[in-house]
Each structure stands twice: as structure tokens, then as C-alpha cells.
Simulated assay, not measured.
Amino acid sequence: MLLERLEDTRSLAQRLVRALPEGALVLLTGPMGVGKTTLVQFIAQALGFQGEVTSPTYTLIHEYPTPEGLVVHIDAYRMADQEELYHLGLEDYLPEARLVLIEWGKPEVFGDSLEVRLSWEGDRRRAELIAHGNFNLQAHPEL
């Protein structure tokens, strides 16, 4: 789907929030500056978070409490071994978080996930949704 305007990204975030079950793991991939953190901001806002959303590049993990549950925002860009996230408690987050969003997440590490691959198409952005492992995209036709 094309994301020609900022409102298109906000609309995608709202659709994701409506469709994704509690504890879903979402990988946000694509080149720098394509809008991964902006999408996280709109997802958090759609769930009722009213604070500032920033990239956790240096802190690794940000948590955003929302009325619908915790949004966990992880930036794995600087991680040589993304499997270390499991040792840092990722599996503890999944059952209690509303959503876990991992920027730069590698699908081969995070098997049961939905990848939102953002890319540039000229001066516009494109979003592609890719299911990995046991994540069933067909069960979410609104996406």
C-alpha cells in the first residue's frame, strides 16, 4: 500500500491497532528515515498514549503505557545478535504487552511475527505486510 501522506501512515497504524491481537510482535523494517518511528508514534496514539514517542536507538527499549495496555518499542539496529533480546526479557513482554514493536527486527530471529516493511518508491513510501511463522495474515482481512 502506498503511504503518500502522513495521514496514510496514521490510517495504517489505526488498522494495525484494530486488527492485531494482544501481545502481537511487529517487526518494522526498511531504510533509515522511511518512517518506522513515526508509525510507532501513530500506533501508540491510536491506543491512547499522549506522550512523546522517540526512537530507543541508545536505550534499546521504550515503554508506552496506554489505556489498552503497554506498547513496547525496541530498536534493534545496534544489536549484533538480536537473539539477545530474549535474554533481556522479550518473552516476558509478549504475554503482558498490548503490542511489541521492533524496529530493524530480523524475521529469522522473531519467527511468529508480522513484518511491516517500509520502503521508498520515488518520493513516496510503500508499506508491505509480511507474515512470519505462525502469524496468520489471512485471519486479519482488514489489513
Rank of each mutant, 00 (worst) to 15 (best):
L2T: 10
E4Y: 04
E4V: 12
R5L: 08
E7L: 06
T9E: 03
R10H: 08
S11C: 00
Q14D: 06
Q14N: 09
R15T: 15
R15I: 09
L16C: 08
A19P: 01
A19H: 01
L20M: 12
L20W: 10
A24L: 03
V26Y: 05
V26I: 13
L28R: 07
G30N: 07
P31C: 00
G33T: 09
G33V: 06
G35F: 02
T37Y: 11
T37C: 11
T38K: 00
T38V: 10
L39Y: 10
L39K: 05
V40K: 02
V40Q: 02
V40A: 12
V40N: 01
Q41C: 01
Q41S: 10
Q41T: 12
F42K: 00
F42Y: 15
I43V: 15
I43A: 02
A44Y: 04
Q45L: 08
A46C: 08
A46P: 05
L47H: 04
G48M: 01
V53R: 06
T54Q: 11
S55N: 07
P56M: 03
T57M: 04
T57N: 07
T57D: 07
T59D: 01
I61F: 08
I61P: 02
I61T: 13
E63R: 14
E63D: 06
P65H: 02
T66M: 00
E68N: 01
G69M: 03
V71G: 01
V72Y: 00
H73L: 04
Y77W: 15
Y77G: 12
R78E: 14
R78W: 13
M79I: 15
M79E: 11
D81C: 09
Y86E: 10
Y86F: 15
Y86R: 05
H87E: 14
H87M: 10
H87S: 14
L88G: 10
G89L: 08
L90G: 03
L90P: 04
E91G: 09
Y93A: 02
L94H: 05
L94W: 06
L94R: 12
E96A: 11
E96P: 00
A97P: 05
L99P: 07
L99W: 06
L101F: 11
L101T: 10
I102F: 09
E103P: 12
G105A: 09
K106E: 15
K106M: 13
E108I: 04
V109T: 15
F110L: 08
G111C: 06
D112W: 09
D112N: 15
S113K: 04
L114P: 07
V116K: 00
V116H: 00
V116Q: 02
V116R: 01
V116L: 03
L118I: 13
S119Y: 11
G122Y: 13
D123K: 15
D123T: 15
R124N: 14
R124K: 15
R124I: 01
R124L: 14
R124G: 01
A127K: 02
E128P: 02
A131Y: 12
H132L: 05
G133F: 08
F135A: 04
L137M: 07
Q138E: 13
H140L: 14
P141C: 08
P141Y: 10
E142M: 05
